[in-house]
Simulated assay, not measured.
Amino acid sequence: MTDENRNHDTEPGAGGPERVIGTPRGEDRVVTGAAPEHEDHEGPYSAAETHGRPEEIQRKGERTAAMWFTIAFVGGVGFLVSYFLFPPNAEGEPAIANPLVGQWANMLMGGTLTLALFGIGAGMTVWARRVMPHYEVASPYDELPSPPEQKSSFSDFLMRSADESGFTKRPLMRRTLLLAMAPLGVAPIVLLRDTGPLPRESLRHTLWEPGMHMVVEGAERTGDNKWIHQDDLRDGSMISALPYVEPTAAHPHGLSLNDQAQTVILLIRIPEEDYSEELTREQRNWLHNGIVAYSKICTHVGCPAALYESGTHRILCPCHQSTFDAANGAKITFGPANRPLPQLPITVDEEGYLVADGDFSEPVGPTFWDAQRGN
């Protein structure tokens, strides 16, 4: 069988017309090329064969689709009205004292939104089945790229498709569709209200504040909440620490998991002479007797940078091998991270226990967190 015969078959009987394999025989076969023109069509372009559907049926379909789009508009407006009539509280439930009324409020919002979406779907279905032309066109594969004459005819093809779809010819249906879509376009903006207040500057700060003591990470869960003394660190040693917060009923260990992730630090003691001369005066003032504190959260994707090599003063994140120079403001020496670990100013109290002298120098966490904060 040749390539030409492989893709086509013939009608029963000698000399029957060719058809594409898998398509119906007889009058319902797929049309190859352009479909025959319809004599009663009105518009700048000739419409394709529509199986004899008269203009009256198309107009009836237009009115039916417009009716469904109008219902969808009413449902969308009803959703917005019910949302503002029964505003949600902080927990996301309607702020209504009577639980029964609250349930009806949820049903009203859900029902009107369902009606809006169903109306649009039903209208689009009627549009496709009763207004748009019903024919199939099959074309043989062409060599790529397309010839210039096909490229130049694209605008004509686009306008012909718009005319056949009824979008340009049926203003009632087009206008009611746009009207129905308007409330649904506003709905997502309104629902942003449920996400709570804007974070504003809150994400730029952590719980660290001047005078806050430090405890070893994990000690708060064992009950050994001993504050860290400056003598607990020797040259080349490193301690992972958290701020000391009095336990509460909500947080029996003092800190929530969120707070721990934001405030965890690395305390490292480095001989004074090993610090880089590139440190600014401010960075040196944040040290105490060679002890420096950096955020433990890697600025790449937020993994804990928990490895420290005392010989080279390098902090290593094991996830993607980002490496930071602890003796030079935690600047990057290797890896995908693109900003240093934020530094925490520290000092000591009257008894020599390490305390914070403020918050981090920069927002903690990955750079994309920083971008979301609006920096």
Rank of each mutant, 00 (worst) to 15 (best):
E4V: 12
N5F: 13
N5S: 13
N5I: 15
H8Q: 13
E11F: 08
E18S: 14
E18Q: 13
T23F: 05
P24W: 05
P24H: 08
V31Q: 13
P36W: 06
E37W: 13
H38Q: 12
E42K: 15
H51K: 10
E56K: 08
E56D: 14
E56W: 04
R59G: 03
G61N: 01
R63W: 02
T64P: 06
F69K: 01
G76N: 04
G76M: 03
F84G: 14
F86E: 04
A90H: 15
E93D: 15
A95Y: 10
I96L: 11
V101N: 11
Q103C: 14
Q103N: 11
M107G: 13
L108P: 06
L117Y: 08
G119H: 05
I120H: 03
G121H: 02
W127V: 03
A128Y: 06
V137H: 15
D142A: 13
F154R: 15
F154M: 15
F157W: 13
S161N: 14
E164R: 15
G166C: 03
T168V: 08
P171M: 03
M181A: 06
L184N: 09
G185W: 01
V186Q: 06
V186F: 07
V186R: 05
I189R: 07
V190A: 13
L191T: 09
R193Q: 14
G196D: 11
P199A: 13
P199V: 12
P199C: 12
R200I: 09
S202Q: 15
H205M: 14
T206P: 02
L207P: 05
L207R: 08
E209P: 12
G218N: 07
G218V: 05
A219G: 09
R221C: 13
T222L: 15
K226Q: 15
K226E: 13
W227K: 14
H229V: 03
D231I: 10
L233N: 04
D235M: 02
I239N: 05
V245K: 10
V245Q: 12
A249P: 11
Q260H: 11
Q260N: 12
Q260A: 10
A261T: 05
Q262K: 10
T263S: 11
V264A: 12
I265E: 01
I268E: 00
R269L: 00
P271G: 02
E272G: 06
Y275A: 10
E278S: 14
L279S: 07
L279C: 06
R281K: 13
R284Q: 12
R284N: 06
R284W: 06
A293F: 00
K296Q: 05
V301E: 06
G302S: 04
A306H: 07
Y308N: 01
G311M: 11
G311H: 15
T312W: 02
I315Y: 00
C319G: 05
C319I: 01
C319S: 04
S322V: 00
D325E: 08
I332T: 00
P336F: 01
L341Q: 01
I346K: 07
E351V: 09
G352T: 04
L354G: 00
L354M: 02
A356L: 03
A356I: 02
A356M: 05
D357S: 14
D359L: 06
F360W: 07
F360T: 01
G365V: 00
R373Y: 11
